[in-house]
């Protein structure tokens, strides 16, 4: 019995190692979301910025757009932020923000400092909208087509490589299809 106690750390470690090994062998930042090719979930979030626009399901229809889950406490979000500034100003693709598990004042300060690339921002302090979208953590990014269907989901910070090789081509393709 006592001997088992001494073996426990080894067993625990091997479990973790197996789990890391499993994680390593797959590049799964692009995940099959259960939402893919389905209409965006039903949700309705109030605006983050007091006189700004909120975000609800119907807002997603009509244009090809991106939905980006972000939070001021999330360092990877800060890392990907310049990409969204670029997409908003140069690529002219609408980006909708979902401000997730954040404090309103922190989030506004964050946007004031770094710039605000979002056309609309839904404020979701209590994971009410996030749960509908199946948000695991911040940041996450979705591509939404003109009919308001989710076409792509990316978990983790988007850098220029993912943007240029995956997201932009997809957006262009969706924009061209009538």
């Amino acid at each position: 019995m006592k001997r088992l106690l001494f073996i426990a750390p080894l067993v625990l470690f091997l479990g973790i190692a197996g789990y890391l090994g499993f994680g390593l062998t797959r590049d799964s930042s692009i995940l099959p979301s259960t939402l893919i090719d389905k209409p965006a979930p039903t949700f309705d979030l109030e605006a983050l910025i007091p006189d700004g626009k909120g975000l609800k399901t119907d807002d997603l229809k009509g244009r090809v757009a991106l939905v980006n889950v972000f939070a001021s406490w999330c360092v990877p979000c800060r890392a990907e932020h310049p990409i969204w500034m670029r997409v908003a100003t140069q690529e002219k693709i609408p980006i909708y923000g979902l401000n997730w598990k954040d404090k309103r004042s922190d989030a506004i300060a964050w946007l004031e400092e770094l710039g605000d690339p979002y056309e609309r921002i839904g404020f979701d302090p209590d994971h009410k909208g996030g749960v509908e979208w199946g948000v695991y953590g911040a940041p996450e990014t979705y591509v939404i087509d003109r009919d308001g269907r989710v076409r792509f989901k990316y978990v983790g910070p988007v850098f220029s490589e993912t943007l240029n090789e995956t997201i932009l081509p997809l957006v262009r393709k969706l924009q061209e299809t009538p």
Partner: peptide, 18 residues
């Protein structure tokens, strides 16, 4: 490592946050 666990079950890199 929780984010990694998610990765193992099909999630990706996330931040569980403060």
């Amino acid at each position: 490592l929780y984010p990694l666990l998610l990765e193992a079950v099909g999630g990706g890199k996330v931040s569980v946050g403060p």
